[in-house]
Computed example of a mutant assay.
Amino acid sequence: MAGELKDNRGRGIGEWSFPPVHPEGRRFGLLALAIALVVLFLVDWEFLGWPLLALTGGVFAFFRDPERVVPQGERLIVAPADGMVSLITKVAPPPELQGPDDQGRPGLGSEPVTRISIFMSVFDVHINRAPVGGTIRRIAYVPGRFLNADLDKASEENERQHILIEKADGAPVGFTQIAGLVARRIVPFVKPGDIVAAGQRVGLIRFGSRVDVYLPIGTDPKVLPGQRMIAGETVLAEIGAIALIEGVAQ
């Protein structure tokens, strides 16, 4: 029927439904549910059981994994994480991503580039996605501290995992998953050599964290600090496009 609304898979009338829970989080949700039911019905501590049951819903919500519609364009860099842009600054890329690898494939170099930091609160979706399509060339895990991920120094001091993707044209794009104050584990879904599409799921960070994206030289951001990001959908930048933007208060 002309004008009929459809969802992003072309099925029926578009309507809201609770997103599926990622398999990585199901065991945490079921464990929390079991504890809540034991406390509520076996121990009969209602004052504690009901809050635990509410917490169970929060655990399932934390690991929700909604579908995303990824913008198409070879030069587009999309947000790898849900959350708020907490910082945009010029920095040298992480040492782990700077030089060529053992096969001579280039890294990001040592010249300062624009870094976009996206802070994820415990209320955001925590599935991280590839900012560009290409081949995973490098994954470097660095142990560290668990400072507030909203702090600038978290990029150098917190537990983190650097990922380098080589696009089809050979250009490298890097990003970093950073554990936060509450987060205690970075979970990868990919390994070196894997081919990923832009917006494809590549990992998650449990319970509050941050993701940094390093834009190629000669590329300006299309987002501003304080702006909300949707992983796999929001366009962070267009490679080679230099066009600074200004926010407008409304």
Score class of each variant (00 low, 15 high):
88 I>A: 02
88 I>P: 09
54 A>L: 15
100 P>V: 09
67 E>K: 11
108 L>H: 11
140 A>I: 12
115 R>D: 03
128 N>A: 01
43 V>D: 01
57 G>P: 12
81 A>D: 10
50 W>R: 13
64 R>Q: 10
127 I>D: 10
45 W>T: 06
53 L>F: 12
71 P>M: 04
65 D>Y: 13
110 S>H: 09
55 L>S: 13
126 H>I: 03
143 P>K: 11
85 V>K: 08
42 L>F: 12
134 G>W: 04
70 V>W: 01
106 P>N: 11
108 L>S: 11
127 I>P: 09
68 R>N: 01
84 M>H: 03
110 S>R: 14
81 A>T: 06
46 E>W: 13
101 D>A: 01
83 G>N: 00
98 Q>G: 02
112 P>R: 06
53 L>M: 13
91 V>Q: 13
41 F>T: 06
97 L>G: 10
94 P>H: 05
124 D>G: 02
58 G>S: 08
75 R>V: 01
56 T>C: 12
96 E>K: 04
134 G>R: 04
78 V>D: 00
109 G>Y: 01
134 G>A: 05
50 W>K: 11
119 F>V: 10
84 M>Y: 06
107 G>V: 05
107 G>S: 09
140 A>W: 08
95 P>A: 14
87 L>I: 01
94 P>I: 02
64 R>S: 13
109 G>Q: 05
70 V>Y: 06
92 A>M: 12
57 G>N: 04
124 D>W: 03
83 G>A: 06
79 A>K: 03
60 F>R: 00
52 L>G: 13
51 P>T: 09
126 H>G: 07
72 Q>G: 00
105 R>N: 11
74 E>G: 03
80 P>V: 07
143 P>V: 00
93 P>M: 05
54 A>T: 11
69 V>Q: 14
92 A>G: 15
117 S>P: 08
71 P>R: 01
117 S>H: 06
87 L>H: 09
80 P>F: 11
75 R>Q: 14
82 D>R: 09
110 S>F: 04
115 R>T: 00
148 N>C: 08
70 V>M: 01
41 F>E: 01
50 W>T: 15
130 A>V: 12
108 L>I: 08
131 P>R: 00
104 G>K: 04
139 I>T: 12
44 D>C: 02
58 G>I: 04
92 A>Q: 15
76 L>A: 10
146 F>W: 12
102 D>R: 13
94 P>T: 05
82 D>I: 03
76 L>F: 11
129 R>F: 09
146 F>D: 01
121 S>R: 01
104 G>I: 09
50 W>F: 15
75 R>L: 14
119 F>I: 07
44 D>N: 15
125 V>K: 07
45 W>V: 04
75 R>G: 08
73 G>Y: 06
107 G>I: 02
56 T>A: 07
141 Y>A: 11
95 P>Y: 02
77 I>S: 07
128 N>H: 14
65 D>A: 14
103 Q>V: 08
140 A>T: 14
76 L>Y: 09
87 L>E: 15
52 L>Y: 04
92 A>I: 02
44 D>I: 02
132 V>A: 02
100 P>E: 10
81 A>R: 09
115 R>Q: 13
129 R>G: 08
46 E>L: 13
144 G>P: 10
81 A>W: 11
80 P>W: 03
72 Q>T: 14
77 I>L: 14
72 Q>R: 15
100 P>M: 07
72 Q>V: 14
93 P>L: 04
98 Q>P: 00
62 F>H: 10
86 S>E: 12
